[in-house]
């Protein structure tokens, strides 16, 4: 393994984020992801998983950024190499676009300001659609896509970016079984190519099947390591027991 491979792709230390400085939702996170890892971020509801991702990307107020490094540098310097799939977007699917147009959006920063997407961009976008099984629907208006297809389309948008780090928030939410399998396969393929993936995942039953590593999270990192070992019964019980105890204390 070269030095470049060994350096963490994503590194957080002392990271705190939340809606206000007084009440951070995410406390003192220390996390490092190595290149090519396929990691699930799991935890109970309200654990701050989405806030963690959004905070890292500067989409939500950060109480104390501590140290956040993408590929050893700041987010702004590394923007093109980081792709993001939001959990619940405000997207209005009646927007006048076709599937190919949305996939193309992943390439916009590469194309540059004021320039139109060329043939090359279109081909890349089509390839991304193909990866998620939407090649046939490239010219379909997004209004006519099913829920599972729409989710796959958003994954395709992230894939088109050809990013080295994928941050996905609930990529398997609200998808049918076929779409779920397709997305899982795509993630495996990407990992094989050296892409680093961190995905918030809600279904404990499938973590071991779809991911290599897991981070158990409840406002801070509870455990991080290979999925099988980390999700031992005791950790899970502790985290989910923790959340109900905390809930009772607040009530």
């Amino acid at each position: 393994m070269t030095a470049a491979d060994a350096a963490p792709v994503l590194e957080l230390s002392g990271f705190r984020a939340g809606y206000s400085a007084a009440e951070p939702v995410v406390e003192g996170v220390d996390l490092a992801l190595r290149r090519g890892s396929l990691t699930a971020l799991v935890g109970p509801n309200g654990a701050g998983k989405s806030t963690l991702l959004k905070g890292m990307l500067g989409l939500t107020p950060v109480a104390d950024a501590g140290r956040v490094r993408f590929f050893g540098t700041t987010l702004d310097a590394a923007r093109g190499r980081v792709a993001y799939l939001p959990q619940r977007s405000e997207i209005d699917w009646s927007f006048p676009l076709r599937a190919l147009d949305v996939a193309c959006m992943g390439l916009y920063s590469r194309i540059g300001l004021f320039r139109r997407p060329g043939r090359d961009a279109r081909l890349r976008a089509e390839r991304a659609l193909d990866l998620v099984g939407l090649a046939a629907s490239a010219r379909t208006p997004i209004d006519e896509l099913s829920g599972g297809q729409r989710q796959r389309l958003l994954v395709a948008r992230a894939l088109a970016q050809d990013a080295d780090l994928l941050l996905l928030d609930e990529p398997f939410a609200n998808v049918d079984e076929r779409s779920e399998r397709t997305i899982a396969e795509v993630l495996q393929q990407l990992r094989a190519q050296g892409t680093t993936i961190l995905a918030v995942h809600h279904d404990l039953a499938t973590v071991r099947a779809y991911f290599d590593d897991a981070v158990v999270f409840h406002r801070r990192v509870i455990a991080h390591g290979p999925a099988g070992r980390t999700l031992s019964e005791s950790t899970v019980a502790r985290v989910f027991g923790l959340s109900s105890a905390a809930g009772e204390a607040r009530a």
Partner: peptide, 22 residues
């Protein structure tokens, strides 16, 4: 001039900001 950027911004502002498209 800015049609693709404005489209991306209108379609999904959060993503556009996150990935620096806009």
């Amino acid at each position: 001039l800015a049609s693709k950027e404005l489209t991306a911004l209108a379609f999904d502002a959060e993503h556009a900001r996150a990935t620096g498209i806009v």
